[in-house]
């Protein structure tokens, strides 16, 4: 994923449930349709939560990775 394509990054590192999802939802409201949003989180529960969130909201989870500490999600806005 090219960094240049990312419209906005949500830094949710250190935040507990449900704030990574809440911050991401708030960010999605201010970016345009099709925008790529990168989320950085350290909450291990976010791996399942972002899958569920994308399924409910119709946003597309296009990439996710982990370096053992930080989880990174790339989501395309519906």
């Amino acid at each position: 994923m090219e960094a240049a394509e990312i419209t906005r990054t949500v830094d949710a590192k250190g935040l507990s449930c449900p704030m990574p999802i809440v911050r991401t939802a708030q960010t999605m409201k201010v970016v345009g349709s099709g925008a790529l949003v990168e989320v950085l989180a350290t909450d291990p529960g976010s791996v399942k939560d972002f899958v569920a969130w994308c399924r409910s909201t119709g946003n597309e989870l296009i990439d996710q990775s982990s370096d053992g500490v930080v989880y990174r999600f790339v989501i395309r806005r519906k």
């Binding site: 590192k13 250190g14 990775s65 370096d67 500490v69």
Partner: peptide, 16 residues
């Protein structure tokens, strides 16, 4: 504080 390891000690990213 909530991290088990500091960010500097992270592994290289593994795709999930």
């Amino acid at each position: 504080t909530t991290l088990d390891r500091p960010i500097e000690q992270a592994d290289s990213p593994t795709p999930l």
